[in-house]
Amino acid sequence: MTNTTLEMTSSEVGNPVNILIVDDSDIIRRMIARTIEMSGLPLSSIHEAANGREALSVLDRTWIDVVLADLNMPIMGGLELLDRTREDAALRDIPVIVVSTESCEERVDELEKRGVHAVVRKPFRPEQIRDVLLSITDRERPAARTDALGRAVDEVLPLLTFMNAIQLDAASLAPSSQTMMHARMGFSGSVSGILSALVPFSLARTMSENALGEPSSSKDADMIAGDTVGELLNTLAGTVVSDLGNGAAFDLAPPEVGTGSATDWADMQVQPTCAAFEVEGHTMLLNLNVR
């Protein structure tokens, strides 16, 4: 036992954070979650995963701001999880805190070389977890860039689909149970993150017909509509990243397109990073998360 000073800085600023805890021990996950709740961070959600594979599946469908991960876990350990996130444009810059029994200095150095933000040794004091978390979340967090989304839509939509859009307040929209397409893509460069979209199927179909200049045959309408939404996302991402990164080089991951649900809509429209657009009587949502 030695003298320590654990300085606390209260953190009421910045967007609320989404945290992922990865550990095969239920008790450790719960202890970490309790510490996070105690620390007074502006918290949006805490997600849990019992191994690397579960973590990747959470990361695939949810925006996560910080990952706390163990190293030794069944199915997929923390090192492989770390490597996988570093290979993914959308996840490359996510701050990772390793919470593990690892104490070998060489290995800790190696982890830091691989981009781990901090290593907290188990068993930990709650103050340690809090201090590391605050050191990450106290950095200036990027504000929601719905303004950049508006500019990108104004630039892209008339060129690609011969349409104009009016930006709406996403949070005040009614829920939607329309059939819709869900698309997302990662990007990295001077800014990195994920752009996702929910586009009603009927709007996607009109977009594709506009782009083609003729009605598509009913048998390939779905495919063409999906392709159009993917390309819309691709060009929007390119425009947004170029705008935010002042023209610096960037990489875009291929867009993933599927179907969206009413739940997806409800989840997306409440995000501070979400923007809504009215396009020819339809409403679509775009969500831009950047680090």
């Binding site: 036992m1 300085e7 606390m8 709650p126 103050e127």
Partner: peptide
């Protein structure tokens, strides 16, 4: 040591952090 451990346990149960400490020795 027992005093310190019990104190930490009570703080944990009450969801309270220690700001600074000078213990042991």
């Amino acid at each position: 040591e027992r005093n310190y451990t019990v104190l930490r346990k009570i703080l944990w149960k009450n969801a309270l952090f220690i700001q600074s400490e000078d213990v042991g020795g």
